[in-house]
Design a protein around this nucleic acid. Structure first.
Lengths: 339, 339
DNA sequence: CTGTTAGCGCTTTCAC
DNA sequence: GTGAAAGCGCTAACAG
C-alpha cells in the first residue's frame, strides 16, 4: 500500500475536524485530554506519518541546514560535519551535504540551490577568496538566513565564523621547533590569499622574530596539500646554499612528503632535521616516525558552528548577530620534532 | 528585504496568470517564445527564486535522498558519500546525512525521520543484524521508496544492494599470504553476524582449503576495528603453543595494531611474519612499512549505489526491481606481505 | 497558447 | 475545546 494517511483521514474516522487533529498532534494546550489521547491512538493505529514538507511550506521552516565543503572525504571536513550533525540532530535538523571541489562556480551553485530548497541555515568553509560569490553570499544574509563560516572564512558583514587561532598554531609549532634546537626553520605555506594560511605564516614569522632567528625568504615555499608537493619543496630547500634544518608545514600531507624525501637523502629525523605539520590527520600518529602536528579540533569546530547557528536561528529580534568564535589550537608533539 | 517574490508577483507585474509563469519557468513546450522570454527576464529582474518546498509538496518528490552510515568521519564512508553526492548532484538531488553510531535505535529513528521528510530514496549501510529495524525497512519498501544497501547489507525482499565481493577479497588476500610462503595464517574477523565479515572469513577458509593449509580454530579471533584490538589479538596468538606466521585482518586498524605489537616482540615483518589488511585506509600506504590491503573502491561503490537509485526511481512500471551489484575487490600489495 | 480552478498536507487565525 | 476557512507556493487538468 502506497497510500499516505493524512490528518484528514484520521479526522474523518473520528468524526472531528483536521484542525483538531493537528492541534492534538502538536500538543496544543487548548485541547481536551480525551481527544488528544484518542487522536494519538488512532494516528498510531492508522500508521500516520507527518509530512514534513507540508509543515515546512506552511511554517517557512524546512528544518534542513546546508553544509558546503570543498570535499567530504578529507578527514578534517568529515569530522566537522560529524560535529555539526551530532549537535543539530537532537534539535530536529537534517544536514544536507554539498561539495565544491574548490570551484567557486559550484560554490555559488550550491548556495543557490540550498536557498531554493529553503534551508534554515548554511554552514560553509569557503573554497577561495575570489569575489565572485560575494553577491550570492550577500543575498543569503539579506534573506536573514543564518550563514556561518568555519575554518576558511571571509570577512563579510553579518556572517558569523568559527575558526581556530591559526596565528597561534603557527607560532606555537614554530616555537616548538626552536625549543628543540632548530635554527634554520623553513615554512610550507598554503595559498596565502586564504586567511588560515596567511595567519599560520604570520605566526611562524612572529616566532622567528621573537626568538631572534633569521628570516630567510628562500625558506618559505608555497605548496599544495599533498605528498608530492612536500617532496618537491624539500628538493628545492636542499639545493639552497644554506639549507634549513627544520620545516613547519601548513599541511600534514606535505610534511609527510618532506619526511620521505629527507630520509631518501640520508637525513636523520629528528636528530638532524625536525618537522612539524598542521591538521593532525589520523595518519600522523600512526607512522612509526610519528609527525608532530597542530590539532584543529574539527569535531569541536563543527559542534560550535552548529551552536552558533542555533543561537542565530532563535534570535527573534531583528538584530543581526555576528559572532566570531576562535578555538585554541592544540599541539600534538610527536617524534618528528622531539629530541 | 526578507520578502520572497513568488510566481504571483511576477504574474501580476506582467498581467498574466501564475500558471503561465509556471509553465514558462518550467520550459513547458506549449508556451510562446515571447512570453517565455518576458517571464524569464522579469523573473531574473525581480530576483525570483523557486521554492522547492512548494514544488515538492505538489509533486510528491522532494529531490532529497537520505544516506545513513554508522559514522561519517571514517574514510570509507565519507568516500562512499562523496561518490553518491557526485553522481546525484547533476541530477538535482541533495544528499541528507544521518549517522547511527552503530545504534539500531538511531537507525530506526533516522529512517523514520527521513521518510517523514519525504526523501525520494534511502541509501544505507546497516549497523548490525538485529531484526528490530525490519518493520521500518519493510515500511520503506512498501511505500515504494527506493532503498539501497551498500557494503553492509541484509537480505530483504525489494531491497537492492551494492557490495564488494568480500569472499573473493578474503580469498585473494589469503592466497597472497600463501604465495608469500606463509604457512600458518591467522585471521582477525569482525562481527561475523554481518555478511561482510562472514564472507571475508569464508574466503580465508576456502583459500586455506584450496592450498592444503591446516585450519586451526585458535587462529581465528574476533576483533573490533581498532588498533588496540589488533594488539591484544596478537598477544593472544603469540601465546599459542604453535603461533602463526601471518595474519589476514578484516580491518586495517587491527592490522596496524598487530604490526605494532609484533614489532615490539622483536618479530620482523615481512621476513618472519606477513600481514594483510582490509579496507585500504589512507594510512596503510603512508606507513614506512606499508600495509597490504584489500581495496573496496568506496567512491565507485557510492557512484554505483547512486546509479541504482536513479534506475529505480525512473522505473515507472509497478515492478519492484531488486538489483544486486557486486564490485570486484582489488588487492593493494605492499611491504607488509612482500618478500 | 493561456486562463480558471483545484489541491498537495498542514497550521492558524477567527469564530462559536 | 472545537469547527470553518484561508493560504503557504506551486503545478496540472480542463477549458477555451
Amino acid at each position: 500500500m502506497d497510500q499516505k494517511t493524512t490528518i484528514y483521514d484520521i479526522a474523518k474516522k473520528l468524526d472531528i475536524t483536521a484542525a483538531t487533529v493537528s492541534r492534538a498532534l502538536n500538543n496544543n494546550p487548548k485541547i481536551s485530554e480525551a481527544t488528544r489521547k484518542l487522536v494519538l491512538e488512532t494516528a498510531a493505529k492508522m500508521n500516520y506519518k507527518q509530512n514534513r514538507l507540508a509543515q515546512s511550506l506552511r511554517s517557512g521552516k524546512s528544518n534542513n541546514v546546508g553544509v558546503i565543503v570543498p570535499r567530504i572525504d578529507v578527514n578534517f571536513f568529515s569530522s566537522v560535519i560529524r560535529g555539526i550533525e551530532e549537535e543539530l540532530h537532537p534539535e530536529g535538523y537534517h544536514v544536507i551535504i554539498c561539495q565544491t571541489h574548490e570551484d567557486e562556480k559550484r560554490e555559488i551553485e550550491n548556495i543557490t540551490t540550498l536557498m531554493n530548497a529553503q534551508v534554515d541555515g548554511i554552514l560553509m568553509s569557503i573554497s577561495n577568496m575570489s569575489k565572485e560569490n560575494d553577491p550570492v553570499i550577500k543575498h543569503v544574509v539579506d534573506k536573514n538566513v543564518p550563514l556561518i563560516f568555519f575554518d576558511r572564512k571571509k570577512k563579510m558583514d553579518g556572517v558569523s565564523s568559527v575558526t581556530i587561532d591559526d596565528f597561534e598554531g603557527g607560532y606555537l609549532a614554530t616555537k616548538n621547533l626552536i625549543d628543540a634546537g632548530c635554527t634554520r626553520i623553513a615554512h610550507f605555506s598554503g595559498d596565502r590569499s586564504l586567511e588560515i594560511y596567511e595567519n599560520r605564516f604570520k605566526g611562524y614569522e612572529q616566532a622567528l622574530k621573537d626568538f631572534g632567528l633569521e628570516w630567510n625568504p628562500d625558506y618559505v615555499i608555497q605548496t599544495k596539500s599533498n605528498v608530492d608537493a612536500g617532496r618537491n619543496a624539500v628538493t628545492k630547500l636542499l639545493s639552497l646554499p644554506n639549507p634549513p634544518n627544520a620545516i613547519f608545514s601548513s599541511s600534514d600531507f606535505a610534511a609527510l612528503g618532506a619526511i620521505q624525501e629527507l630520509k631518501e637523502n640520508g637525513i636523520k629525523i629528528p636528530e638532524d632535521f625536525c618537522v612539524f605539520g598542521f591538521g593532525n590527520e589520523p595518519f600522523t600518529r600512526f607512522l612509526e616516525l610519528s609527525i608532530s602536528s597542530v590539532d584543529q579540533s574539527p569535531l569541536e569546530m563543527g559542534r560550535m558552528a552548529a551552536k552558533v547557528f542555533l543561537e542565530q536561528i532563535s534570535n527573534t529580534d531583528n538584530i543581526k548577530i555576528e559572532k566570531k568564535v576562535v578555538l585554541k589550537p592544540e599541539l600534538q608533539i610527536r617524534k618528528s620534532s622531539t629530541r
